[in-house]
Design a protein around this nucleic acid. Sequence first.
DNA 1: CCTATTCTCGTACACTGTACGTAAAAACGA
DNA 2: TCGTTTTTACGTACAGTGTACGAGAATAGG
Lengths: 238, 238
Amino acid sequence: MTRDGGSGATGVDPEQLWLSPGQPRRGRRPAFSREAITAAAVALADAEGLDAVTMRRVAAEVGAAVMSLYSYAADKETLLELMVDHVSGELPASAALTGDWRTDLKAVAHHQRDLMLRHPWLPAALSTRRSLGPNTLAFLEHALAALRPTGLDGAAKLEVFAQLTAFVAGHVAHEVMQAAAVRSPDRAAAEARYLATVAADGHHPELAEALAAPARTLTPDATFTRFLNRLIDGLGTD
Amino acid sequence: MTRDGGSGATGVDPEQLWLSPGQPRRGRRPAFSREAITAAAVALADAEGLDAVTMRRVAAEVGAAVMSLYSYAADKETLLELMVDHVSGELPASAALTGDWRTDLKAVAHHQRDLMLRHPWLPAALSTRRSLGPNTLAFLEHALAALRPTGLDGAAKLEVFAQLTAFVAGHVAHEVMQAAAVRSPDRAAAEARYLATVAADGHHPELAEALAAPARTLTPDATFTRFLNRLIDGLGTD
DNA sequence: CCTATTCTCGTACACTGTACGTAAAAACGA
DNA sequence: TCGTTTTTACGTACAGTGTACGAGAATAGG
């Protein structure tokens, strides 16, 4: 199983991954580092997409032989989990809280979105995977603190965070696809032609009308903010 | 390129894919069908996950040679798009509408979720891809009709639908991962041990408290419904 | 029959993740 | 100092991937 789109992924043993003993004082000294390898993989994914992250290319980028990577990550799935936690380190895990949980939760979501826009492969990576690494947990800790004023119990708070993350990931995944479509105008034009054809067949009146309307170009940021506000303002109104 | 999690996917030309001329009355008669091939691929994904969908396995399942598949789908990416539209055919595209758009939109979301639970690979597939096939468009038409009473303009309606789909996909992706974790108790136990270790280090007080609380076992259905209601009830309250 | 046209499928190739084994380097016990 | 042990480095090899190419078979029109 090669990772990415598989829906049967079981994940990696977190104890083995994240609770490694400090440093073994024996044996040959490592020539590389988990950090450097992970960073190279992230850079590759940022520049050319997740598919460009192959063991061979990462190794080349880092100046190592392919099999040397396996001293730092048990397999590719592990490397992907390391990548997720690595970029999660960019999240502000210790930002000040206002005390208004809605405001703070919105900030959390905005930080997640910014991260995902900086690393467009992240939504796809998260759709099959999740990290329990230190950076991820630090940000989770921050989010739980933001939720403290709600008085929700633990399970509910975890639920809200998971839900919010899923919402943001889903949103950004769509956002990224649209941005990609804009970047290749030929494809976009072909798509528009196709949709016009479909709309003209008479069986899709609503679609025809929706497409006929002048394209309101609302910025993605505004769209995200609007939906986020609706979701969060609705919370706690049981 | 294996196209599973790639974020650089450009998509397939919809005109070429979905607007094929009826039937060419010349040449050798097809031994298989796009339908049968797609159905076999879907069955494979349902049973063993997206990674099990390889051209060779699909061909074997359908009784064809590998390269014969390429007469029906230009490449694997196309086959995946066909799969997405194929299962979208299970969505009730012509169900009656109540006229209350909130109620109708909730029903739309519930149908989407049911579909994704039946085909757990769907959220991951949608995170990099989208279909413009007939079944997908038929359901979009239905959703737009449900949104008619809102008085929103076309672009806004499309936006709401995309947003809702993203929300559902994100939710189900998480839901499926948790379900998979439950199915393998060893992994779950290891994870719990690991989290307990982290919580015991003193740097994650909120996490420690959240984990210490008795695990309220709310059904996934109830959780989904709750969040969905919050999102939809918040719509249209600008 | 001839000639297009369309489909079938065997072969081949570049590329993937990674199992296995050997060699090198470092630290420890003698 | 010299094994011994432990850890990392990496070459080779292999099964499996998507798919380009081309040769053959089957159908239809002239």
